[in-house]
Amino acid sequence: MLTGPRIVFRHSLMKAASTILICGAPACGFVAESSLAADSAVAGPSTVPVQVASPVISDVPIYLDGLGAVQAFNTVAVKSRVDGQLQSVNFIEGQYVKKGDLLAVIDPRPYQAALDQAVAKIQQDEADLANAKFLLGKDQKLSEQGITTQETLEAQESQVSQLVAQLAQDKAAKAAADISLSYTQITSPIDGRTGIRLIDAGNQIQTTDSGGIVVVTEMQPISVISTLREDDLPSVQQAQKQGPVEVEALSSDKSSKLATGHLSLIDNEIDQSSGTIRIKSEFQNADNALWPGQFVTLRLRDRTLSGALTVPSSALQRGTDGFYVYVVNPDSTVSVRQVSPGPIEDGKAAITTGLAASDKVVTQGQYRLQEGTKVSFTPIQTSTTSASKVN
C-alpha cells in the first residue's frame, strides 16, 4: 500500500512529463517546417525544357496548287484498214515502240494477188494502146491520100483516147492495190508504250471492229491538265510574261514530288459553274513517274519573296487573336508574341510582322508554356532549304 508522500511524488512526475511533451510538439513542428523551406530554397523555381530556333532570312517561293490529271499527248487505237486474217502479232504487251515499228501482219496473199492482177491489166492496156496508135497512124496516111474516110479516122482517134483513159484508170487501180497491200503491215503511228493486246493472232479482223489490235500511248513527254481559281489568272499571266513558269507534279497527298516541268497553256475560257480555269503543263517524264489517268497535285511557282524572315512552321501557334509564337527572353523566360505569317512551304513559314532576326522562338514544347514561364532550351539548326531551293 502506497503512502501519502509517494502518491504525491508520482503525480508530480506525470505532470512534468506531460508538460515536456506539450512544449516539445511545437518545437518539432518548427524544425520540420524549417527543413522543408530550406529544401525548397535549394531546388529553386522549375524550368520547362524546349527547343528553339532563330529566324533565317531567305528567299521563299510562292506556289499555287490545283488538282490535276495526267494526260498523254497522243493516244492511238491501232486498227486494221483492211479485212483479213491476223497472221502475226509482233509486239509484247507493255513494250515501248517507235513510230514505224511493225506491230502486226494481216495475211497479204489476197492483196498481193490483186496487185499482180492490176499490173497485168496495165500491161494489157499498154499493148492495146500501142496497137491503137499504130492503126491511127495508118489511117492518118490513108486519109491524106483520100483512101479512108474522115469518119474512120475519127473513130480510130477516139479508140486511142479511150485506151489512154483505160490505162490511167488501171494505173490508179494498181496504186490502190499497192496501198491495200501495205495496210497488211500494221505499224505504230507514234512513239509510245503498247497496252494490253485486244486480239490474238489467227483471228479474222475487220475494218469495222471497234476494239482494234492495241492502244499505243505516248508517255514521253506527257501533260497534266489541272485547274486554278479564276482569281489566280492575273498572277499566272504575269508570271508567264517573265519567262517559262516552273510547275511541279506532286502525289495526290502532297507527300512526294513526282516530276518538274513547265506551264504550256492557259485555257481560253473560265468555267463559270466552278469559277476555275484549266491549265496544261508539260513534263519530260523520263522516269515514267507520271502515268496517264493518274491524279496529281499540280504546284505552280507563282513568284518569289526575296529576303523573307522565316522560322520553322512548328513555331507557329494559333490562338483566339490569330497566330503567335513564344519568344525566349534574355532571362530565359518566354513571352507571347503576335505575328503575321506569310506563305508556308517545306516546313518553313515566312513572317511578315512581329519578329526580328535576333529573336529566338520556341519550336517544340509549347504545350507547357505560358507568359513568363522559365525555360531551358536546346538550339536547333535552322534549315535554309527555301533559300537554296530558290537559288
Rank of each mutant, 00 (worst) to 15 (best):
M1H: 12
T3V: 09
I7C: 02
K15E: 00
L21Y: 10
V42L: 15
G44F: 13
P45F: 10
V52E: 01
P61K: 01
G66C: 12
G66S: 03
G68P: 01
V78E: 01
G84R: 06
L86M: 12
L86N: 06
Q87K: 14
V89K: 12
N90C: 10
F91Y: 13
I92S: 11
G94R: 15
Y96S: 12
G100C: 10
L102V: 10
I106P: 04
D107G: 03
P108S: 11
A118S: 15
I122M: 08
E126N: 10
L129H: 00
A132I: 09
L142A: 09
L142Q: 05
E144Q: 13
Q145D: 03
T148D: 03
E157F: 08
Q162S: 14
Q166E: 05
L167N: 07
L167Q: 09
Q169N: 13
Q169G: 12
T184E: 07
T184Q: 00
D191I: 09
T194L: 11
I196C: 03
R197Q: 15
Q204N: 11
T207K: 12
T208Q: 10
G211E: 02
G212M: 06
V214M: 02
V215G: 04
V216P: 01
P221S: 06
T227R: 10
D231S: 15
Q237G: 00
Q240W: 06
Q240T: 11
V245T: 06
L250A: 05
A259K: 04
T260M: 08
S281K: 10
S281Q: 01
S281R: 07
N285Q: 05
A286S: 15
P292S: 12
G293K: 09
T297L: 10
L298W: 08
R299W: 03
L300K: 06
G307F: 10
S313F: 04
Q317T: 07
T320V: 12
S335W: 06
S335Q: 14
V336A: 09
Q338L: 11
Q338Y: 09
Q338F: 11
Q338D: 08
V339Q: 00
P343T: 13
I344L: 06
D346V: 07
K348M: 15
K348P: 01
K348N: 04
T353Y: 12
A356I: 01
D359S: 06
G365H: 08
E371L: 15
G372N: 07
T384F: 03
T384G: 14
A387H: 13
N391E: 09
